[in-house]
C-alpha cells in the first residue's frame, strides 16, 4: 500500500523511538566506558584508560580465559550433537511430544535448569568445575544448534543424498562430502549462536561451577565486581562483551540467510 510522505515520516519516527528504547541504555553504557573521570554523571573527556586497567586485572583475565574454554568446549559438543539430532529428526519426523522435548531446554527457565543440573551432578557424584559448566551449557546449546540446523534442512534436497549413494558412495563418504558441506552454513550459524549464548550465560554457570574462584566465568566475575557499584571498568567489560556478541549474532544470521538458495 502506498503511503503519503507524512505517514512515512510518522512511521520512521515510531521506528526510531523503538530503537531508542532498545538501544539507548546500551549506547549510554558504551559512551561512559570511554569517560575519563569514570563518573556516570559528567563527561570529562575521551579516554581508553578503563580498557587498559581491565587488561591489567588478573581476575578479569582469568575469568575471560575460563569463559573462552567453556564457550569453545560447549559449542563443540553442542554443534556435533545438535547437528546429528537435527539430521535424525528429519528422518524420524517426530510427533509433537518428541518435538517439544527437543526444544524444551530453550524455554525452561535457566534457574530451573541450573538447579536440576546441580542436583543431577550431586546424584552422580560428578565433581564441579569448568567441565561441569561445559556440560551444562551444552545441554541448552544442543537445542539451539538443532533448531538453527533444522531451518537449514528445510531447504535441503534429500535426493542429493540418494544421488550420492546411487553414484557409489558409502554413508560416511556421503555425509562428509555431500550432506555436511551443503548444510555447513547452518551448522556454523548454530555454532556461533551457541558460542554467544555460552559467553553470556550466568545463572547456570553460577550454580554448576562449584566452590572456589578457579572456575569463575566472565559474567560471574562482573557480577562479583558489581556488588561494589557500577565501576567504569564494568562499563568497559560490558562494551567488549557486547561487541563480541553482536558480531557473532550478525555473522550467524548472515550465514544462514546468504547460503539459503
Amino acid at each position: 500500500m502506498p503511503r503519503t510522505p507524512v505517514e512515512r515520516r510518522w512511521l520512521a519516527g515510531h521506528l526510531g523511538l523503538v530503537y531508542l528504547f532498545l538501544y539507548g541504555p546500551i549506547v549510554v553504557l558504551i559512551v561512559l566506558s570511554f569517560n575519563k573521570s569514570g563518573l556516570p554523571t559528567a563527561w570529562t573527556g575521551f579516554s581508553t584508560e578503563w580498557y587498559g586497567r581491565l587488561a591489567a586485572n588478573p581476575a578479569i583475565l582469568a575469568a575471560a580465559r575460563n569463559t573462552l574454554i567453556v564457550a569453545v568446549g560447549s559449542t563443540l559438543i553442542a554443534t556435533a550433537i545438535g547437528t546429528l539430532l537435527a539430521l535424525g529428526l528429519e528422518t524420524v519426523r517426530p510427533g509433537p511430544v518428541l518435538e517439544g522435548l527437543v526444544f524444551a531446554p530453550m524455554v525452561i527457565p535457566d534457574i530451573v535448569l541450573a538447579i536440576a543440573l546441580l542436583s543431577f551432578y550431586a546424584l552422580l557424584n560428578v565433581s564441579l568445575g569448568l567441565h561441569s559448566i561445559i556440560l551444562s551449557h551444552a545441554v541448552f546449546n544442543i537445542a539451539f544448534v538443532c533448531a538453527v540446523v533444522r531451518t537449514r534442512l528445510k531447504h535441503f534436497d534429500k535426493s542429493i543424498v540418494e544421488a550420492s549413494i546411487d553414484l557409489g558412495a558409502g554413508e560416511v563418504t556421503t555425509f562428509f562430502r555431500i550432506t555436511l558441506p551443503v548444510i555447513f552454513p547452518g551448522v556454523l550459524a548454530g555454532a556461533l549462536l551457541a558460542f554467544t549464548l555460552s559467553v553470556d550465560e550466568f545463572i547456570i554457570a553460577y550454580f554448576t561451577s562449584g566452590a572456589g574462584r578457579a572456575s569463575t566465568t566472565f559474567p560471574m566475575q562482573i557480577y562479583a565486581m558489581i556488588r561494589f557499584g557500577v565501576t567504569p571498568e564494568i562499563n568497559a567489560v560490558a562494551t567488549i562483551v557486547l561487541g563480541v556478541s553482536f558480531t557473532l549474532v550478525l555473522l550467524s544470521q548472515r550465514l544462514n540467510r546468504d547460503f539459503v538458495r
Binding site: 542429493i160 540418494e162 558412495a169 558409502g170 558441506p181 538458495r261
Partner: peptide
C-alpha cells in the same frame, strides 16, 4: 551403492557445492 545401475532424479539432485565437472566426476 554397489549396483551397476544409475538413476537420474526427477529434481536432478545435482550437488550444489560442486561444479558441473565435480558433479560428473563424483
Amino acid at each position: 551403492n554397489r549396483r551397476p545401475v544409475n538413476m537420474m532424479f526427477q529434481s536432478y539432485a545435482l550437488f550444489p557445492h560442486f561444479s558441473v565437472h565435480g558433479n560428473v566426476a563424483y
